[in-house]
């Protein structure tokens, strides 16, 4: 077939069309006259109001959407926690501290800071330094926590007093005292580790209050599975 293919004329872009640029570059007389008046006309005011309304509406609607996106990204749920028994109050003497391992595996330093057997007399601090995440040590003779990685120093209330963590604090865990027994609120969930023992522990948050009550009546040993141990032993190192 030798017939010529019928192709429609090629549409050129507006900027390349010979007659369009003049239309685009030269504003019409109507536009010029509208813009050249000194006092705003009613049409100008309506136009401004309409444009403002459109911009505000778009801002409000997309802003709401962005707000929902932020709500979605910032989690509001908190991790599972429980009040767990640590030790009888009389088991922790003034100036000493015990190291408590929560079911999640978190290491917590519990110290007595006053003589009374009330919650305010104890403090439960995370032993993870807020600076770089190293584990801090309790130095009973100096009444301070010391971070060996970068020489960070925290006072007995966990407030950074020297070194890079100055101004930051060790995280605190809430404390409760009931019938002379000390309880601390700790997270139950644990991240997996290669050795995996913490994951096992967190599966069974033990009904500890019953055990603690039994213990208060009789023996003063920490309940089985609680892992509440004096740091370095009661006879040892950390007591003031």
């Amino acid at each position: 077939m030798a017939s010529e293919p019928k192709t429609p004329p090629i549409e050129t872009p507006i900027s390349q069309s010979p007659d369009r640029p003049a239309q685009r570059d030269e504003p019409s007389q109507e536009v010029l006259s509208a813009g050249s008046t000194e006092d705003p006309t009613r049409r100008d005011l309506l136009s401004v109001a309409l444009n403002t309304g459109v911009v505000l509406s778009l801002g409000a609607s997309y802003g709401t959407l962005a707000g929902h996106a932020v709500d979605y990204l910032v989690p509001t749920h908190s991790e599972a926690k429980a009040w767990l028994y640590v030790a009888p109050c009389r088991g922790i003497t003034l100036g000493s501290q015990v190291k408590y391992t929560a079911p999640s595996g978190a290491a917590i330093a519990v110290a007595r800071v006053a003589a009374e057997d009330s919650a305010a007399s104890f403090i439960a601090l995370s032993s993870t330094c807020p600076h770089m995440g190293c584990q801090v040590l309790w130095e009973g003779s100096k009444s301070r926590f010391f971070c060996p990685c970068h020489n960070g120093v925290f006072n007995e209330r966990g407030e950074g007093t020297d070194g890079p963590p100055k101004g930051q604090s060790l995280s605190r865990y809430p404390i409760r005292v009931e019938n002379g027994l000390l309880f601390v609120e700790v997270p139950l969930t644990a991240l997996p580790r290669e050795r995996g023992h913490s994951a096992q522990a967190c599966r069974q948050p033990v009904p500890l209050r019953r055990k603690a009550a039994q213990e208060a009546q009789g023996a003063a040993q920490p309940a089985e599975g609680l892992h509440a141990t004096p740091a370095g032993g009661r006879s040892g190192d950390e007591s003031a």
Binding site: T128, P130, H131, M132, P164, K166, G167
Partner: peptide, 25 residues
């Protein structure tokens, strides 16, 4: 539960890592 005794980021963060050791956070 175990902070390594020595921990380093990638080399391009060494400068920031050192800076963080020199001053409060």
């Amino acid at each position: 539960l175990t902070t390594p005794e020595v921990i380093k980021p990638e080399w391009y963060f060494y400068v920031a890592f050192r800076w963080l050791k020199l001053f409060p956070a």
